[in-house]
Design a protein around this nucleic acid. Structure first.
Length: 212
DNA sequence: GTCCAGGGCCTAC
DNA sequence: GTAGGCCATGGA
């Protein structure tokens, strides 16, 4: 938590996710797989331009159309099918009523989403936290890298082990989970890059020696 | 020209 | 069970 306070002091509350609606959050979560947000923003703008920024619209759109619009997000053919698959699931599961969907038992819902093609743990947890407002800590490459830099023994942990590691150390609180992950991403874009040199890092006081 | 970015699936050993 | 290939753009 010391790390979070340092980041919050420096950067202020990040107010994630950068989207207007829950549908946009979900679409963005799928599109952002393995690409930077700037590419996703372009794709979202293209989808918006064609009136395809809701799951209902995507459900009725052709995969080829979607693929063309989301081309900047890499692997666009795969992602077009993933969006379609998710929209199909939402229709069948709750008739596009996300309130109903997110009211389900959390662990059961998480398992259902993970069973969908193209949705791995990071994407599912982003959707649950940022679209559903549910208490799930999102773990990503940045999180792992930062913890590792801070001296935490996380290199060999898989996704769920790392998530449990953090859940034991961070109070179970949705706004905190939301902003903590956003702070980590923000921080890593500036400082915690793959090359280990971090001059001016705001976490230098706690790096390689502390608890999150 | 080269590298890598907010994954996940599939296949081969 | 796990390493490695595949998907295939755009910015630094």
């Amino acid at each position: 938590m010391r790390v979070y306070k340092l980041l919050l002091d420096r950067n202020g509350n990040q107010n994630w996710w950068p989207a207007q609606t829950r549908d946009e959050v979900i679409i963005g979560a799928i599109l952002t797989q393995s690409v930077s947000w700037s590419n996703v923003a372009k794709a979202l703008a293209s989808l918006a331009g064609q009136g395809l920024l809701t799951l209902k619209d995507i459900h009725s759109a052709a995969p080829e159309t979607l693929a063309t619009l989301i081309r900047p997000t890499l692997y666009y053919n795969q992602k077009a099918l993933r969006l379609k698959g998710f929209a199909d699931f939402i229709k069948a599961a709750c008739g596009f009523d996300l309130d109903r969907l997110f009211a389900e038992d959390l662990s059961a819902l998480r398992a259902r989403l993970l069973a969908l093609k193209g949705l791995g743990p990071e994407t599912v947890d982003s959707i649950l936290l940022y679209a559903g407002g549910l208490p799930v800590f999102v773990v990503d490459a940045y999180t792992k890298r930062l913890l590792s830099r801070l001296g935490h023994p996380v290199e060999k942990l898989d996704y769920h082990q790392l998530q449990a590691y953090l859940s034991q150390r961070v109070p179970r609180d949705v706004p905190l989970y939301n902003d903590f992950h956003a702070q980590i991403v923000h921080h890593c874009k500036d400082f915690c890059k793959k090359t280990p040199l971090c001059p001016g890092c705001p976490l230098s006081a706690v790096c390689s020696s502390s608890s999150p």
